[in-house]
């Protein structure tokens, strides 16, 4: 059996932080840790994964892997699993990661725990903690098939450097152009100087209390001062002040940054589900009874239009 595999999340050589989080977590298990990286030419990235404990790096190279596509990636990974028999395969719970893992799991007629926030792996047994109802409850699930398959939520596991050998393995290529069934016409990256909502250290979110685009501007000014991502409650998304991809909550993104600042957000249960696992939470709201204060480490009963500009000045001192 060949230890724990971590499927690398990267686009054009930009490696998502969740990859390092997964490698660090896999290292704790004690088994051999391998990074599996797909792309046109990816061998050069191997040292990046070795820094976080990868003993081996499977460099899966070819034109057919240049961009993520389910068909070719699944065909290839299924062949590699048959050849090398890993105990467990961990994917990032990104859009690509969950797509990849779900189709692979069905091909192998296997179980899959998605969006895991804690991992217990030993002797081929895998138990995962999952947030259900967007974090309103927790389920512990065991994947009873082999290899154990899971997708891991970004931002939950600690990154720890530890030297691994990073020995490059070039697996036999099993996928062909015939396996590709999604014709990717274009990919347009989100043009934003701000970090990705689900990967940001700090998130500043605006809600109904922002009253409109001017209030959102104030939230954005604070976010930029902190190098933070901007998010919103359903009220500000439904009002069109922010794009849907920035919604935090049960029908949006679930985030767990180091610091979450809720500005003008009352704290509907829908929203709390998406952010209450953040490490520190600050809230600014004019209503002293707003439920957001029940989950806040630091609550300010005041008008965000008055507090945030002064806060920015104070922080710049």
């Amino acid at each position: 059996m060949a230890g724990t595999w971590v499927i690398v999340e990267q686009r054009d050589g930009n490696i998502r932080k969740v990859t390092y989080e997964m490698l660090s977590e896999a290292k704790k298990i004690g088994d051999e840790v391998s990074a599996v990286v797909f792309g046109k030419s990816v061998e050069g990235m191997a040292s990046e994964f070795a820094k976080y404990g990868a003993d081996k790096v499977y460099a899966v190279e070819g034109d057919v892997f240049a961009e993520y596509n389910t068909g070719a990636y699944v065909a290839q990974l299924a062949a590699m699993i048959a050849e090398y028999s890993p105990n467990a395969v961990l994917f990032a719970h990104t859009f690509n990661g969950r797509d990849f893992a779900s189709r692979l799991a069905q091909k192998l007629e296997a179980g899959l725990a998605t969006d895991a926030i804690a991992v217990e792996l030993s002797a081929g047994r895998g138990v995962f903690t999952r947030a259900i109802y967007a974090g309103k409850a927790i389920a512990k699930v065991e994947v009873t098939t082999n290899p154990v398959l899971a997708t891991i939520r970004a931002g939950v596991m600690e990154v720890a450097e530890s030297a691994g050998a990073g020995a490059v393995v070039k697996p036999a290529i099993a996928a062909t152009a015939g396996d590709v069934y999604q014709n990717i016409k274009s990919f347009v990256p989100t043009v934003s100087a701000r970090p990705d909502l689900t990967e940001a250290e700090t998130v500043v979110s605006g809600g109904r209390g922002c009253k409109g685009p001017d209030g959102i501007k104030i939230v954005e000014t604070l976010a930029d001062l902190l190098g933070a991502a901007v998010g919103g409650s359903r009220a500000s998304i439904d009002s069109g002040w922010l794009g849907h991809e920035l919604q935090v909550g049960q029908t949006g993104k679930v985030v767990c940054p180091n610091l979450y600042i809720a500005a003008g957000i009352s704290g509907a249960i829908q929203h709390l589900a998406g952010m209450s696992s953040s490490k520190f939470i600050a809230a600014i709201n004019t209503d002293p009874e707003a439920p957001i204060f029940n989950v806040s480490d630091f609550g300010v009963v005041a008008d965000l239009f008055k507090v945030i500009p002064t806060l920015c000045t104070e922080l710049k001192k």
Binding site: V127, I132, A137, I138, A139, E142, V143, T144, S276, F293
Partner: peptide, 17 residues
């Protein structure tokens, strides 16, 4: 293919200042 071991409530977040 998966088995629920248990359900639990998330740790309650305490309100601060």
């Amino acid at each position: 293919k998966v088995k629920i071991i248990e359900f639990a409530m998330p740790p309650a977040k305490q309100a601060g200042v």
